[in-house]
Simulated scan of single mutants.
Amino acid sequence: MVRLRIVFVAVLLIAMIASALPLRARDDARPYRLVPGDRIGVTVYGHEDLSGEFRLDRSGSVSLPLAGRVALDGETLRGAEAAIVRALRPDYLRSPRVTVQVLGHRPIYVLGEVEQPGRYPYERGLTVMGAIALAGGYTEHADRTAVSVLRARGSSRRGKPADEEDAVGPGDIVRVPERDLF
């Protein structure tokens, strides 16, 4: 009976801690969606001539051997695999097996009142604070309370105020404005 209570209390504590985590810390758990500029690897098993590296063009499509143009903008990796299978079947292959992986994410941009504004490689798990650190940190004129992120989701951009713990995704733009001096 004592063991059962201990297990129950442990499970309850774990559930409480998990629910207390801010949502932004869990943003990275969402499935990645492909957007223009991503570099992907496509493997069609048993057909090396149909496999290779491809970059999504401005419209979010790739041109694949036999399949032609396949729209992948906004698709998850599993969705991209299914779209490629549909493009290859039934005219070219009876039951194609396809895998898609991201080979290169778009960079992030850190602009405004940071020591070294510019373009930086995306790293999984990157936060606003991490992006600002990549750019050398805040300048003395930075307004740390008004940082915003322009999110690159699909082919559209949405800006929103950001906390330092918020996740940064591929293609996002972190803006650090100048504080009012008067």
Rank of each mutant, 00 (worst) to 15 (best):
L64M: 11
P65S: 02
D49S: 00
L72W: 00
G74Y: 09
D91R: 12
V35H: 11
G60W: 08
G41N: 06
V44P: 00
S63A: 14
G46T: 02
T76Y: 04
D38H: 12
L34S: 02
E48S: 13
I40H: 03
I84T: 02
L72M: 07
R89H: 14
L77K: 09
Y45A: 11
A87P: 12
P90M: 10
R55A: 09
V85I: 15
E48F: 11
E81L: 02
S51W: 06
A87L: 08
A71S: 14
L72G: 11
I40K: 04
R69V: 08
R78G: 12
V62E: 07
D73I: 05
R89E: 14
S51C: 13
V35S: 14
A83H: 13
E53T: 13
V70S: 02
P36Q: 12
G46K: 09
S59L: 14
L64Q: 08
S63N: 15
V42R: 03
S63K: 14
G68H: 09
P65N: 04
G60F: 00
R69A: 07
V35N: 11
V42L: 05
G74P: 12
G37V: 04
R39C: 08
I84P: 07
R69T: 10
D49P: 07
A82C: 02
L88I: 12
D73S: 13
L93T: 01
T43H: 10
E53F: 07
